[in-house]
Design a protein around this nucleic acid. Structure first.
Lengths: 348, 348
DNA sequence: CCTTGGATAGAAAGCGCTTGCTGTAACGCT
DNA sequence: AGCGTTACAGCAAGCGCTTTCTATCCAAGG
């Protein structure tokens, strides 16, 4: 049936142990023997049995990447960068590791399920991307899971996610608060005093941090915030569209709309246009993340650029043990304000 | 150290065999025993050892999804849909399957590497998304790999990819040719006679099929194509921008630009604007795929909608054996022309 | 009251690979 | 020449689980 190590060994006239060692290249094997073995492997078209190998060696070459929404380029870009650092050489058995992307869809249960599945597969490393849920029992469950994974030797890296105390997880955290604050300061600097804010889903750290930054900027400028100015919704275009209509209904005098991210901002732009308002003459709009399409919006989007690819690559290297973790296991990744056409001086 | 089946068995005062049977639920176990076992599992916080299980049972619960570019929503949307159908119950051991997304980056070598890795893991199924390379030796290598995977019992589904003859692969193919033709017919119908075409990378089936559709429409309308009107590039915004400038340089009298996909079209729009041309008054633009952001372009993009999520979901179900494959193992998925603001009657 | 059979539970043989330990040549040194 | 080394190669013991076959118990049938 399927070719096994023993078959290769027989064909190469050596013991299975020798074949294994040739394949793993972690033990001296005479060049002539190695060649004979490799030829046999080739001739028989042998493919290592991953599970058997993982069982015997008590390690696997699987690396898990958890994302909230794989259809969102925010995660896609990070995942791509992470995977780019993982696919390369550096491991056992041909130096290939299987980087796998798991889509939680933002669901706490699926997040835990995937972590269990990865634990079951004895993953070599796990990278969790994006914000975390602020739901206490869930957070505790995740922390417990991470602790157990860490104890089992799985390296854990958080990319764009707040640190997980009491775990061995390395955290590369985005400075969402700082970025949010800078963005709103920019708008205030232009003269805006009545700013709507379209926040992401509640109970997410990203949502809260960006909103806190926004409010900090308002407070620093002595602007008293009107509760009507904040609406929560999902992190997508549709939510931005609807939230904007709602904001306009609540207070038509708003001169700026700050969105939780770029997709939401795009929806906001559409809603404003459909309401007959010009951007930025009537209302300024700002996003967050600076995804590739943001520059193509008309007018192009003022936003905060997050170095997603760089952060992902770094997370990937750390997960592979190819880069030193930051001191204290925590690093903050800052965003950069990108001022573009969608923000301007308010009318009147 | 780590908890094993035997530990659970000891705690529940049963044999390991019984624990295994409780966990897999494929053999009668008295309710009282089952409960005792489950309690022990819970108390010890036991997690099955995936590799050991896969080895003993000669099957695994891994499902691979190959994508060309995970940062591109085109693939993200499909991957998300596929995964949505796979994550659910229906398998062994808790009914969870690990759907893993592998990013080939469009590289033939990585595609083969990933297929080998999945073969090594004895994946339960593999879904390949997106166009294939038209490089003969590579195509043959992939076909051989797929054949071997199929023989090993791995179910194979192609989603948005042409059929692979002589393999057991089920194919859900996008009608790129038909879509391309319809799109160009629309533009011709508006009165355009000089149409630039920004094609994707050569050697890809998707690129060729869309281009063939375009040319078929031109031919049907009796328009002789000028070789200067076609430029090849990558499937991203940047390539679209540059290709458009090149097209304009070659023939400033073009009245329409057809792009290989929406991202490219967005880049084309930017280039046209930067060249001082209005859309669609001076030049019409069309894309392909109808990704979520396309409707937010200004003007919104005329394009061909591909039912990515539906096709992905179907592919996922077929991969899980929960839906009958189409007759002959091949189904064609049609696109739908979406006429929007970026296409109009040519000037003059 | 013994037999028959259904329902469970256990014993044990692997699944295919890795690796510590045990040979065994060939080599270099005094 | 004799002996310690070095450099490979092989043996065999698992890794933790699944599953076939067998054993046991008990209720029902004769």
């Amino acid at each position: 049936m399927t070719v096994t190590l023993a078959d290769v060994a027989a064909r190469a006239q050596v013991s299975p142990a020798t074949v294994s060692r040739v394949l793993n290249g972690n033990y001296p094997v005479a060049a002539s023997t190695r060649e004979r073995v490799l030829r046999a492997v080739d001739e028989l078209d042998y493919v290592l049995n991953g599970p058997a190998s993982a069982l015997a060696a008590a390690t696997s070459d699987l690396v898990g990447i958890l994302v909230n929404d794989i259809a969102d380029p925010f995660f896609g870009i990070m995942a791509s960068a992470i995977q780019g650092e993982i696919g390369g050489p550096g491991g056992r058995a041909g130096g290939e590791r299987l980087a796998v992307v798991c889509n939680t869809g933002g669901s706490p249960e699926r997040e835990l399920t995937y972590l269990t599945l990865l634990q079951r597969q004895r993953a070599a490393a796990v990278v969790l991307t994006g914000g975390a849920m602020e739901n206490e029992p869930h957070a505790a469950a995740v922390a417990a899971k991470l602790r157990r994974l860490g104890e089992a030797g799985t390296r854990i890296v958080l990319c764009g996610r707040p640190p997980a105390p009491d775990t061995s997880a390395i955290a590369l955290t985005f400075d969402n608060r700082g970025g949010g604050r800078e963005l709103t300061e920019h708008l205030i600097g232009l003269g805006h005093r009545r700013l709507g804010y379209i926040a992401g889903p509640e109970e997410r750290t990203t949502t809260r941090h960006r909103l806190e930054g926004h409010r900090a900027a308002l407070a620093a400028a002595g602007i008293e915030e009107d509760p009507r100015w904040t609406v929560h919704g999902r992190y997508d275009r549709r939510a931005g569209y609807e939230a904007t209509l709602e904001l306009l209904r609540r207070d038509p005098s708003l001169t700026a709309v700050v969105a939780a991210n770029d997709s939401v901002a795009l929806g906001a732009c559409a809603a404003l246009r459909d309401s007959g308002l010009r951007i930025p003459e009537d209302v300024s709009v700002a996003g967050f993340d600076d995804l590739p399409f943001s520059i193509d919006a008309v007018p192009s989007l003022t936003t905060v650029r997050l170095p997603l690819a760089e952060a992902g690559a770094r997370a990937g290297r750390i997960a592979m043990g190819r880069e030193e973790p930051p001191p204290g296991g925590i690093a903050t990744v800052r965003g950069e304000l990108m001022v573009r056409g969608s923000s301007g001086v308010p009318r009147g």
